[in-house]
Simulated scan of single mutants.
Amino acid sequence: MSGPWKSRPPRDGRPPSPYGARPSHASQASPADEGAAAPAPPNRRGSEQRLYGLNAVHAVFKARPEAIRKLYLTESRLTALKPLLAWCVKQRVGYRVVEDADLQKLAGSEHHEGVVAEVLRVEPQRLSDWLQALPAGPQLALWLDGVGNPHNFGAILRSAAHFGVSAILLPKQSQLALSGAAARVAEGGAEAVPLVRLGADDNAVAQLHAAGFTLAATVVRDGQDLFATSLPQRLIYVMGAEGEGMAPALAEACDLRLSIPGTGAVESLNVSAATAVFLSRWRGR
Rank of each mutant, 00 (worst) to 15 (best):
P18N: 04
V271I: 07
V89P: 03
A38T: 02
T74G: 15
A63I: 02
S230F: 03
L169Y: 04
L176T: 10
R184N: 07
R44F: 09
L250Q: 01
P16K: 08
P15E: 13
H25W: 10
E244M: 12
W130K: 09
S7V: 07
H162C: 13
Y72A: 05
P15H: 12
A38N: 07
P39I: 11
A249H: 03
L178G: 01
A217E: 01
M1Y: 15
R221H: 14
K62Y: 04
P124A: 03
C254A: 13
A101W: 12
A155Y: 11
R50E: 00
L142G: 01
Q28L: 14
G264A: 12
P10N: 09
L226P: 06
A228V: 09
G146T: 05
C88S: 05
V277M: 00
V196E: 09
V196G: 00
G164H: 11
F227P: 04
F278C: 08
P10I: 10
L250P: 01
R197S: 07
D202G: 13
V193A: 02
P65C: 14
D102Q: 12
V115P: 00
M1D: 05
G46N: 12
L134T: 12
Q125C: 12
N149Q: 13
G223L: 03
E118D: 12
P65Q: 14
A241G: 10
V219H: 08
T218S: 13
D102W: 05
A38Q: 11
G199E: 08
V98T: 08
V205R: 01
P41V: 09
S280A: 11
L269P: 05
P9Q: 06
G20E: 10
G240S: 11
L256W: 11
L127V: 06
Q49C: 14
S17C: 12
M239E: 04
P248E: 04
A21T: 09
L142E: 05
N203Y: 14
D100W: 08
E123W: 07
D201E: 10
R96G: 08
W130F: 15
Y52F: 15
V193G: 04
L78A: 13
M239S: 05
Q207G: 00
E75M: 08
V115K: 07
A204T: 11
A141F: 03
L226E: 07
A210V: 03
Y95M: 06
P9K: 05
D201L: 00
Y95I: 02
P232V: 00
L269R: 02
S76R: 11
L170H: 02
R257G: 12
H58A: 15
G53H: 08
V196L: 02
R45G: 06
Y52C: 04
Y52H: 11
A59F: 10
A36C: 09
P10T: 06
A210N: 06
V266P: 02
A247S: 09
W143M: 04
I236F: 03
A216Y: 05
R121E: 01
V119M: 01
G223H: 11
V266W: 07
W130E: 10
L250V: 09
S76A: 13
A67I: 02
K90H: 15
S272Q: 09
A273L: 09
N149F: 11
H25K: 14
G180Q: 04
V205G: 06
R257Y: 03
V219A: 07
R64F: 03
G243T: 10
L81N: 00
